[in-house]
Amino acid sequence: MSVAGPVGSAPAALGRAGAPSRGRGRGVRRWTVDRISLFVVFLGLPLALFLVFVIWPFLQAAFYSLTDWTGLEANYNLIGVGNFVKEFQDQNFTIALRNNLIFALVIPIVTIVIALAFASLITIGGPSRGPMRGIAGSSFYRVVSFFPYVIPAIVIGLIWAQIFDPSSGLLNQALIGLGLPYQAFAWLGEPAVTRWCLMFVVVWGFVGFYMVLFIAGIKGVPAETYEAARIDGCGRFRMATRVTLPLIVENVQTAYIYLGITALDLFVYTQALTPNGGPENTTLVIPQLILRYAFLQGQAGYASAMGVTMAVVTLGYAGLVFLLFRLIRRALGSER
């Protein structure tokens, strides 16, 4: 790490400035200007910023979730857990929570499976003679599939909203060109398909990035391991599932958690594609509700309660994934 340099070299400087009794072991150290300024700059300041702009708002939100604060007046009353009770009687909230959970179940697994498949093709999917390498033109595919990740999420959303347009969208025009009756099919207006269209867009946007992540993981595996497996007669699919996967399972776990957190949010994508929650609220997500209640309907206390609930759900999700992967690693025999 780049910051390690100055920090690491600090004790030497301290030694010069400090008293000759400078500690062997854990003696009491003197507070010199050097040490104090070092701590203030490298620890105090970041910590203070973190506390003021991250932890403190968290605590505030947790407190406001117990109030009937409108968000527009300085006064509020403590109402205990009333907001949390109201949440689970609010149909909008339960629908949004269900949608978020569906997204958190589907998006990570689909993205990771596709990203892993691509990563395998690009690194070890090549000819079975000679050194281990990817399919022909793999460096080209690697760059191309990373493109979507370079585009901001909101732009991805807006582009796809145009593609899905029933009357003039690229998708329907292409289908009509193939002679199919898609003159007015509303991809973002049919309850049965909208959710899947949204998930497709998210997966499309993320596959490239996670593919690159997995490629890096695979490159870290010694080539001898693959060569040994190949000599033992291992095919490409088996190589991917029995050699690659166990060796990069930690990367997969990280990817799973990141994608899960993204799927529990999805605010940007839903605002671009289905700003009203989609047909029959099939793509309504909790961040959209938080915006609606906090700022448009003057129920900031209630919206804070939703935020707190989401934080708990996200933590629970991460915990579950950790547990799941511990079990998987044990089953794969790569528990360290």
Binding site: E73, A74, F295
Partner: peptide, 30 residues
């Protein structure tokens, strides 16, 4: 709504507001 919310809570709102658009403050709350 999101721009003026802190000013209302802080007690220093502007002198005149055109409270309109999709992000308007619900009049019922202010």
């Amino acid at each position: 709504a999101s721009e003026l919310q802190p000013r209302f809570v802080g007690g220093n709102p502007p002198d005149l507001i055109d409270n309109s658009g999709a992000q308007a403050i619900g009049f019922n709350s202010i």
